[in-house]
């Protein structure tokens, strides 16, 4: 047990140790005035360099997608909405960049980024590497419905050159 009896000398010793240890602490803090670089990144003007494998915004390169549904199956929060129809047999089967034939016609590819938990499981299973995490993190919206991104629209396909790393 701690000795809680207050003796005359104990009282002043306590004050002495309190002042002394506080001064030591203040000296440690005071040394931060010089010699220490600021660690703050002043965000809108200065941007932090993110590592290469940053798991930020998902981007699906719809031109290379073979509609295999693997990403939607592996997603733990079911935020990928994908639908496709079989390609008519008399038409020629187009191929992806890596030569995989696209036997299905992709009719819908929507990711609800408000629901996405950025776990990266969908990008791992993707056989043609068309679904990737990019390092773009500035895509806030006013309404939750706007967070659903349809990757078949023209303006999102055009983003391919901007945010996908080669």
């Amino acid at each position: 047990m701690r000795d809680e009896r207050l003796t005359f000398f104990g009282y002043f010793r306590n004050i002495y140790t309190a002042v002394k240890s506080s001064l030591i602490g203040m000296w440690i803090t005071f040394r931060y005035v010089w010699g220490k670089k600021p660690v703050t990144v002043e965000y809108p003007e200065v941007r932090d360099v993110l590592p290469d494998n940053t798991r930020s915004r998902l981007y699906n390169d719809a031109l290379n997608c073979i509609s295999c549904n693997l990403c939607a199956i592996s997603c733990p929060v079911d935020c990928i909405y994908i639908s496709s129809v079989p390609r008519p047999k008399d038409l020629e089967v187009p191929k992806c960049d890596d030569g995989t034939p696209k036997r299905q016609v992709l009719t819908q590819y929507v990711i609800d980024t408000a629901l996405c938990c950025y776990c990266g499981l969908c990008t791992v299973v993707c056989p043609t590497e068309c679904l990737t995490h990019t390092d773009d993190y500035e895509y806030s919206q006013y309404m939750v419905e706007d967070m659903k991104y349809d990757y078949l629209t023209d303006d999102l396909i055009a983003w391919r050159d901007r945010i996908v790393k080669t």
């Binding site: 701690r2 809680e4 306590n14 309190a18 240890s21 030591i24 602490g25």
Partner: peptide, 15 residues
Amino acid sequence: RLVSQNRIFQERTMG
């Protein structure tokens, strides 16, 4: 030195 040995911190936490 800054926190663990500080008497004020000790008074607040000991016992």
